[in-house]
Amino acid sequence: MLFLDCAVAATCQPFGLDRRAVEPKRAGGAAGGTRQREEHSARERGSTGIVSSGIRQLGPYRLTNLVYSGATTQLWKAVHDATGVTYALKMLVHRAAKDRSQIAYLKREYEFRRRVLDDNLINILEYRVEQGTPFLVIEWCPWPNMKSWIQEGLDCYRPIIRQMIFGATEAVAAMHRQKYVHRDIKPDNFLVSPQGQVKLIDFALAKKTGGLFSRFFGGAPKIQGTASYISPEQIRKKPLDGRADLYSLACTFFELTTGRPPFTGSSQSELLTKHLKAPPPSAETVNPEVSPQFSQLLIKALAKNPNDRFRSVPEFFGELHSVPIFKNDPTPAPAAVF
């Protein structure tokens, strides 16, 4: 597969997996960038999952390649024996297979995707348990995630960046139309084709908005999300609506156009404090090629108070249609109906 003459890193995986509460940087460096996980190679982690048991078949699915192995989940490429169709199996490793909270995350992803039907979201076909192993059957999508494109450098994906931004916005809006918030929008959770087509993944934190319970009893019992992209209201554990995802989407687009997230810190505490109190930076200041119009859109979407942002992702999308992303871009066509 060609990636606009840029080599995609061999470590790039098509699906994001373990994400729960925000986590601190494990050792050294800034806390900016992707949410830190205890990730090791498949070889190092294989002993905790299916590999050590010698299981290479789960029901009708024949496991062919271990794609990713994390603290609680593994992702396998698998083939359905009867149809020959390739799927991704996201399964709990042995020590998590009996953990009710981890099982609940898997079931939540499946139930969400069963209710919300949209081509911009990765498809989850079923949840099942075979040989004591809970797993999801997911459509196989071999595209790199947006974070991998960013790591390759802006020149690699600049020809398709507008399609990337529009596709990601459309995917988030699809969730919001059906009254769900994702709560973990970030570059890792968008798969992007060489042509700029986008699919949103990882729905374990997806939550229905506007319910009676959330209005009276507040938000999550603990901070959930990824520290570099989390909204102030998530940090404060307030009830959420689509504007929380909009904030995270603006963080994502800031990184997509500048190469770094809007806020970084030497610790998780410092990073979260910046989300709460630091003025949003200008993307144009970080990358002078970014247009002032696009930079101002991001600044508004990054407002600390949700009431100071766009009222919704569709409103943001409407404004997005009319501005150039970079200063030397041609004048955009008239806005399409969203």
Rank of each mutant, 00 (worst) to 15 (best):
R100S: 07
R100G: 12
R100T: 07
S101D: 14
Q102H: 15
Q102Y: 13
I103E: 13
I103A: 09
A104E: 13
Y105H: 15
Y105M: 15
Y105E: 15
L106I: 08
R108K: 15
E109N: 07
E109G: 08
E109K: 05
Y110G: 03
E111M: 13
F112C: 13
R113Y: 07
R113W: 04
R113D: 03
R114P: 07
R114A: 15
V116P: 10
V116C: 14
V116F: 12
D118V: 05
D118Y: 08
D119Q: 12
N120V: 00
N120C: 07
N120R: 13
L121A: 11
N123G: 11
N123Q: 14
I124G: 03
L125V: 00
E126K: 02
Y127L: 10
R128Q: 13
R128F: 01
R128M: 07
V129Q: 15
V129N: 10
E130K: 04
E130Q: 14
Q131P: 00
Q131S: 01
Q131C: 00
Q131G: 00
G132A: 11
G132H: 10
G132M: 08
T133N: 01
P134A: 11
P134G: 12
F135V: 13
L136R: 08
V137E: 00
V137W: 00
V137T: 04
I138Q: 09
I138Y: 06
W140G: 01
W140N: 07
W140F: 15
C141K: 08
P142H: 02
P142E: 04
W143N: 15
W143F: 14
P144Y: 11
N145T: 09
S148E: 14
S148W: 14
W149I: 12
W149S: 10
I150D: 02
I150R: 01
I150E: 06
Q151P: 01
Q151W: 04
E152D: 03
G153N: 06
G153P: 05
G153F: 10
G153L: 08
G153Y: 11
G153W: 09
L154D: 01
C156A: 13
Y157I: 10
R158Q: 11
P159Q: 02
P159V: 04
P159H: 02
P159M: 03
I160V: 14
I160A: 06
I160S: 05
I160E: 08
I161T: 11
I161F: 03
I161W: 05
I161G: 01
R162E: 09
R162K: 13
Q163G: 00
Q163I: 00
I165T: 12
F166C: 08
A168Y: 04
T169Q: 06
T169D: 06
T169G: 10
E170S: 04
E170Y: 02
E170Q: 10
A171R: 07
V172R: 02
V172H: 03
V172D: 02
A173Y: 03
A173N: 09
A174H: 04
A174N: 03
M175C: 14
H176E: 04
H176F: 07
R177V: 01
R177D: 02
R177W: 00
